Computed example of a mutant assay.
Amino acid sequence: MTENSSQSPIPHAPLAGVIGMPIAHSRSPQLHGHWLRRYGINGHYVPLPVMPEHLAEVLRILPRAGFVGVNVTIPHKEAVLALADAVTDRAALIGAANTLIFRPDGKIHADNTDGYGFIANLRQHAPNWQPDAGPAAVIGAGGAARAVVAALLDSGVKELRITNRTRLRSEQIKSEFGARLVVYDWAQAGNMLEDAATVVNATSLGMTGKQPLRVPLDALSSDALVTDLVYTPLMTPFLTEAASRGCHVVDGLGMLLHQAAPGFERWFGRRPEVDAETRRVVLE
């Protein structure tokens, strides 16, 4: 027996990635690749285009192929909940998961870190933000909005106003999240900004290639914190107009960066720092 043959085999570098369809636009490989290089970690993070009809099969195979977890994006964030062996309370409440951890026994643990990323972004770029300073107003009622609503309520917002082009979706969120929510008709979206301390665009309106967000900001207080989940462009017309009215504005890129940190730590064993260099790399 040779000397080398008696040694333990070299463990495979941990693999992680992001699953979605389409996936080419995702900035997650740039982000996680930057962190892997920064901390000298022998691991890999790859984009994984997966069709909905193949999702269950792929999730069964990935742990056996050396994957320790994946991020999940459109259109799979809801479907993975039914395929997971364990689901965190916040993922169940939001009704979607964006982070999967594959345990050594192959079981799948599903979590949602979007709300964490949203609040961490506000804390970083608006350190004086007080969630209980006044009502919060959320525009939109999709999956991202659900994560934002859960995070704002958990952080101490006492009244949360919500509007959506389809009122029924807002009503559904109110029925699940409770009496602190007040639903506004889409036509009255501008009115819900009156005396609001925190205003969030949780729709894709205003994104490059999408229709603009046409909500009048006449009632917006200059003391309000205004943020947009859209980060292409970084300064959306919504944020530009809010800034012109004296508001403190926070772009949406930080939410993407911060929501990724818990998954990276679980997969690769190091809590990454979200700083100016991280933003620069992802914007390249």
Rank of each mutant, 00 (worst) to 15 (best):
L153I: 11
F118D: 03
V281A: 13
T163H: 07
P63M: 01
E284G: 13
I23N: 00
T166F: 06
G156S: 11
K77G: 01
I94D: 07
G156K: 07
M207R: 12
G43A: 09
L168A: 15
P63W: 01
A96S: 14
L220M: 09
H109G: 13
I139S: 06
F67G: 01
L160Y: 02
H34P: 03
A86C: 12
A145F: 01
T113F: 06
A137D: 09
C247N: 11
L239G: 13
V199H: 07
F102G: 03
A137V: 11
S170C: 12
L55S: 08
V226K: 08
K77Q: 07
I101W: 14
A187D: 08
L205C: 07
K210C: 13
V281D: 02
A126M: 14
H32N: 00
A179I: 10
L160N: 05
A197C: 05
N201F: 09
G95M: 04
P63A: 02
P262D: 03
A141Y: 06
H109T: 13
L160C: 08
L59N: 00
F268Y: 13
N42R: 13
L31W: 01
H125G: 15
H109D: 15
G246N: 14
A82H: 08
R266S: 12
T99R: 04
M207S: 07
H32I: 00
I139C: 04
R245A: 06
D111W: 04
N112S: 09
E171Y: 08
L213A: 07
L31A: 00
R167F: 09
N42T: 10
V250N: 06
G33N: 09
A97S: 13
G20A: 12
C247I: 10
A150W: 06
F177I: 01
P75I: 01
F102W: 04
N112C: 03
V281Y: 05
T240P: 12
T99L: 01
G134H: 09
E53N: 11
M192V: 06
S222T: 14
L205E: 01
V250C: 15
R169Y: 12
K158Q: 14
E284H: 15
Q30I: 11
